[in-house]
Nucleic acid binder design. Structure first.
Length: 423
RNA sequence: GUGGCUAUAGCUCAGUUUGGUUAGAGCGCCAGGUUGUGGCCCUGGAGGUCGUCGGUUCAAGGCCGACUAGCCACCCCA
């Protein structure tokens, strides 16, 4: 029979690697908590409409990357491709705009995009992110960036660069958009087909095109900065000032556009040098002041970011993993099984991690297994121990082994563990 | 979604000038070398329909095609 394998673009997190993902996530939540962010969890499935309206029909995510299906009731559902729209939906649905502003929220979990998989890109991947909702202050933009920055530093991720831009708002973006179109339309026939469509539907996206011909045309184009209205100009300056105060270096990147429709004003990404040429964005985000209304809820300006944990785990220093089982209880005779079970339970209640090897394999095999598991202590129970009401406690580091009364076993085990810890 | 590279044991890989008998190694795993004892060492063993399907051929792990999956570039982003 044919074997069943995992779905394309998905990955199993085996025990040797999962701790790295857990640790990176826990550290993010911890750093965020020090800035007042509280964790929120939303469903992995949402009504398709949430993303169609929130993220935007013309975006790559919605137009070709969503896992969409009909449930048994005929409703169109989608596995979430990103976290911001769901969090804003939850925020509006729970009436949180009636609470403190801004409300600082953090989240972590799997996201899904039906994209072609590659290194650093998966169909199910994991994000850690923040949203600060209910306040339009540009200083909040810098705060969100500061959390991301501090988190990456704490993970030991180096060679990062913060790319910062403003793409304007409803007051000034239309003018810039029009200037772009007017500038480029005369030479539209020199664009490739995809970029020609973008010229009509989402001309800003042409700015970060990598097509050499497009780039050549875009080179002479006016920059967003020249078109920003006073409000946007001021906001951008204040984000920069706040970043300076945090001591975070950044690079103005007038070509940074980002692919989601809900962004306004501030957009940013954090890039990593070692992933140059590949999937080098560790983290991306921005401000989305009109999103809540798009979802049918009261206005709730906000700013946030999302970071890809697979990419971060790939370059972060991996923490050493402690052995799973420092104590192994081993039987050397079938009759010793009940006593071994009782001893194991006593040790577990005392707080130790204990594996019980009660089968009929040879003593040599069981000792080898205990060693391979990383055990520090082995408690051996054979017919001799059974007769004497004792247990042989062996320190696997030193090889020292002594026979103690069963009742004394927990103390003897603890003594070895303490000694091992001190050494 | 486009182009390119790759696909042999659990892992990393060999596989012999241009297709030719029972497909190999190291590591790992299991067992023995100690009537009941780990790490080192020695010996033995298990494990592969050579990604799948089809084609060429007297003969295919080596050639051809399609499919699947992984990787790289593009696209885009996390």
């Amino acid at each position: 029979m044919a074997v069943i394998t995992r779905m394309r673009g998905t990955a199993d997190w085996l025990p040797d690697r999962l701790p790295a993902l857990r640790a990176a996530t826990a550290l993010g939540l911890e750093v965020a908590a020090r800035y007042g962010y509280q964790e929120i969890a939303t469903p992995v499935v949402e009504p398709t409409e949430l993303f169609a309206r929130g993220v935007g029909e013309t975006t790559d995510i919605v137009s070709r990357e969503m896992y969409t299906f009909a449930d048994r009731g005929g409703r169109s559902l989608t596995l979430r491709p990103e976290g911001t729209a769901p969090v804003l939906r939850a925020y509006g649905e729970a009436g949180l705009h009636q609470g403190p502003r801004p409300l600082r929220l953090s989240y972590a979990g799997p996201m899904f995009r039906y994209d072609r998989p590659g290194k650093g890109r998966y169909r199910q991947f994991h994000q850690f992110g923040l949203e600060a909702v209910g306040d339009a202050a540009p200083e909040l933009d810098a705060e969100v960036i500061a959390v991301a920055w501090e988190w990456l530093e704490a993970l030991g991720v180096q060679e990062t660069s913060l790319q910062l831009n403003s793409i304007g708002d409803a007051a000034c973006r239309p003018a810039y958009r029009q200037a772009l179109v007017e500038h480029l339309r005369p030479s539209a026939d020199r664009l490739n087909e995809l970029d020609r469509q973008r010229l009509e539907r989402n001309p800003l996206r042409l700015l970060d095109s990598k097509d050499p011909d497009t780039l050549a045309l875009v080179a002479g184009v006016p920059e967003v900065g020249e078109f920003l209205c006073p409000g946007c100009r001021d906001a951008l300056a204040r984000v920069g000032d706040a970043l300076d105060a945090y001591g975070i270096p950044y690079q103005r990147n007038p070509r940074l556009v980002r692919g989601l429709d809900y962004y306004q004003r501030t957009t940013f990404e954090i890039w990593h040098a070692s992933l140059e040429g590949a999937q080098n964005a560790l983290c991306g985000g921005g401000r989305y002041d009109g999103l809540s209304e798009l979802l049918g809820y009261p206005p709730a300006p906000g700013v946030g970011f999302a970071a890809g944990l697979e990419r971060i785990v790939a370059i972060a220093a991996t923490p050493a993993v402690a052995p799973a089982a420092p104590v192994a209880v081993v039987t050397l005779a079938p009759a010793a099984v009940p006593a071994a079970v009782r001893l194991s339970q006593r040790l577990r209640r005392a707080g130790s991690a204990v594996t019980a090897d009660l089968g009929s394999r040879s003593a040599k095999a069981k000792m080898r297994a205990a060693d391979a598991l990383g055990a520090r202590v082995v408690c051996l129970l054979g017919s001799g121990e059974l007769d004497g009401g004792t247990v042989a406690v062996r320190d696997l580091r030193t090889g020292a082994q002594r026979s103690v009364a069963l009742a004394e076993a927990p103390r003897a085990v603890a003594a070895v563990l303490d000694g091992a810890g001190a050494a």
